[in-house]
Nucleic acid binder design. Structure first.
Lengths: 175, 175
DNA sequence: CAAAATAATTAGACACTGCTCAATTAGCCA
DNA sequence: TGGCTAATTGAGCAGTGTCTAATTATTTTG
């Protein structure tokens, strides 16, 4: 996935590269969707670890570390990161809870960091804000990776995302 | 595209539905990517018209109209809207300028509305902010349409996006 | 009006895809 | 060694994007 990207990914190519036949792939994974869920689940784990490390090792500004690590992972593994959002489950199919949990783990990191910035804020309020800020940074990161920002001449997507996050936290702190 | 969505879209199915053979499709469009560019270009025109209408006909709060119309179009045509971002050009292929212009037209609407809110702000500053706010709202809209927000129990994505936009404009107005 | 030239359209072929399943092979245990 | 189970295979099905030689329509010209 890291080499071919989502569009170029195929079960047959996987089989070729690991030296097995297609049949074996389909004995291990119920369908291509299940294989993709497994791959993206692993990506989420890598990403979560990456975030936790960067926040711990970063300087005092944990929010900056968080936003920059969010972008950093995506930039380091663009095809892996995009595959997460390229893969859409067919209608009626649902993600196993084990994989859902991997995604929630990342959300929890963000929640925890925002709660830290807003000690007087109710948890439900922080959850709200965390979801919104994830969407905000995600939007910036998407435009960065798909080249839209470069095309528009935008040179500091990370800084912009950080600004939006700072404003939102400051605004929540005032009220 | 509106019926099948990006994943279920195929040139052969288009040919079947319009009563022509696949060959004819490929005589009119250089490749499937070119057909997709044409479809997404049309979607951008529809979207831009939709935004302009809603802002003009909406009440006095033009920013609210803008954000709600952004979401409104995506909700009214989810598969059409998602196809815009599902389609990734193969490396080395570039979008014709005619289609790029259709995308810029939408950006210009946002730019114009933000400039209106910040009459004392330099154009370059407004451009910056417009790009960031598009990314912000885009992120929220993506999470809404792909079901992430529903899964997290988030019930007011549009209102959240509007809050982020308001904060950013207020912050830019203060400095 | 007929013939020639141009334009539009077709369907088959190629290499690829996800997926299934009867047949085969490998590993293990008595 | 024989028997049983688990792992593995690859041909086959229906679908895909893409190309192209052949065919059919249409228009222009003599």
């Amino acid at each position: 996935m890291e080499e071919t990207g989502f569009a170029g990914f195929s079960a047959r190519e996987v089989a070729r590269r690991i030296g097995y036949s297609i049949g074996t792939i389909y004995n291990v994974f119920e369908s291509l969707d299940h294989l993709l869920i497994a791959i993206n689940g692993r990506t989420f784990e890598l990403w979560t670890d990456y975030l936790a490390e960067r926040i711990a090792e970063g300087g005092g500004d944990r929010i900056q570390s968080l936003v920059e690590a969010y972008f950093g992972f995506a930039r380091d593994h663009p095809k892996l990161w995009m595959a997460i959002y390229d893969h859409r489950l067919p209608p009626g199919m649902f993600m196993p809870d084990r994989d859902m949990e991997k995604r929630r783990a990342l959300t929890r990191i963000v929640f925890h960091e925002i709660a830290r910035q807003l000690p007087d804020c109710a948890d439900s309020e922080v959850e709200h804000l965390a979801r919104s800020l994830i969407a905000t940074v995600h939007g910036h990161c998407t435009y960065e990776l798909n080249g839209s920002f470069a095309l528009m001449g935008e040179k500091h997507p990370t800084a912009m995302a950080l600004n939006r996050v700072r404003e939102a936290i400051a605004s929540a702190g005032r009220s």
